[in-house]
């Protein structure tokens, strides 16, 4: 009973939190809290197998899959509220009501006395008792459920599957394609230039500089340029300006060698700054 009074407020708070929090990952995390607490409640109620399965299947596999998808689609993606399947909401309402009625009937059986209790159920051991029920009285329901699950899995695979219409390009084909691109469009056949070559920084968002001092667009990832987070050479060289000015002020007249060294190490860059 102590476990219940400790876990119940946590579960309720976490469940309410799912509705309130903004980020999908936070919601998933709170859902995990609810599920693990639920599993511990199962354990307290003498159902250790259900406890393990709840954590392995729901927390470990299904919720992890949620997280995986949330991370893949983008962390801040928001749901569209357009109903794609007609009558979905009405159906969901009906099925939810049916489920609620089932739960109420199930719990109401406690007062009728139709429930044997866990002590009777666990007489042969929890796992053994569960196995015996699953593979004798409820074997048809068990098999039907597993068939349903397999059908769903195969269906998902069929929907996601795409026949390959053209053969997969081999390494030879790709090399030939590169040479053809060079001949026809003049595209450089070798690897792309690295970011940051001849620039002040060698970070991935700093373009390399061509010999004439102009930035090489192809040296920065397309994703970064689409986001507009590419730095320009003068922008990253502002500390050079500050350095040069400070040195000019402090030691007026005699130009020290230290001020010249950072600027001369990236000559084209320094030129642009001044």
């Amino acid at each position: 009973m102590t476990a219940f009074w400790i876990l119940a407020p946590i579960m309720v708070l976490a469940a309410l939190g799912i509705l309130v929090v903004r980020k999908a990952v936070h919601a998933a995390l709170l859902l995990a809290v609810v599920m693990v607490s639920l599993a511990i409640l199962y354990l307290v109620q003498d159902a250790p197998f259900l406890f393990a399965v709840q954590i392995i299947v729901y927390t470990g596999a299904i919720l992890m899959l949620f997280l995986f998808v949330v991370m893949l689609v983008g962390v801040d993606a928001s749901d569209s509220l357009v109903e794609t399947i007609r009558g979905q909401r009405a159906l969901a309402l009906v099925i939810g009501l049916l489920f609620g009625v089932t739960v109420v009937i199930g719990i109401a059986q406690v007062s009728v006395g139709a429930i044997a209790g866990m002590d009777t159920a666990n007489a042969d051991g929890n796992v053994q008792g569960l196995a015996e029920l699953l593979f004798t009285s409820y074997v048809f329901a068990f098999e039907a459920t597993s068939a349903l699950l397999i059908t769903a899995a195969v269906g998902a695979m069929v929907l996601a599957h795409r026949e390959r219409l053209v053969p997969k390009p081999s390494q030879t084909d790709l090399a030939k394609k590169r040479m053809r691109d060079y001949a026809e469009h003049g595209r450089h056949p070798g690897p792309l230039p690295n970011p940051g070559v001849y620039a002040r920084h060698n970070a991935v968002d700093t373009p390399a500089l061509l010999p004439d001092g102009t930035p090489a667009e192809s040296s920065v990832s397309r994703v970064l340029s689409a986001r507009g987070t590419v730095k320009t050479a003068p922008e990253v060289a502002d500390d050079v300006v500050a350095l040069v000015e400070r040195d000019n002020h402090s030691t007026a007249g005699a130009r020290p060698t230290r001020a010249a060294s950072p600027a001369s190490s990236d000559d084209t860059d320094g030129e642009e700054v001044r």
């Binding site: 393990a52 954590i55 392995i56 470990g60």
Partner: peptide, 26 residues
Amino acid sequence: DMPVAVLFVLAVASVGIYGIVLGGWS
């Protein structure tokens, strides 16, 4: 010990992976 001790180890290990996944995301 419990009747499902080995499953318990699996379950606990699967919770541990959350640390890695969430650390990567956050």
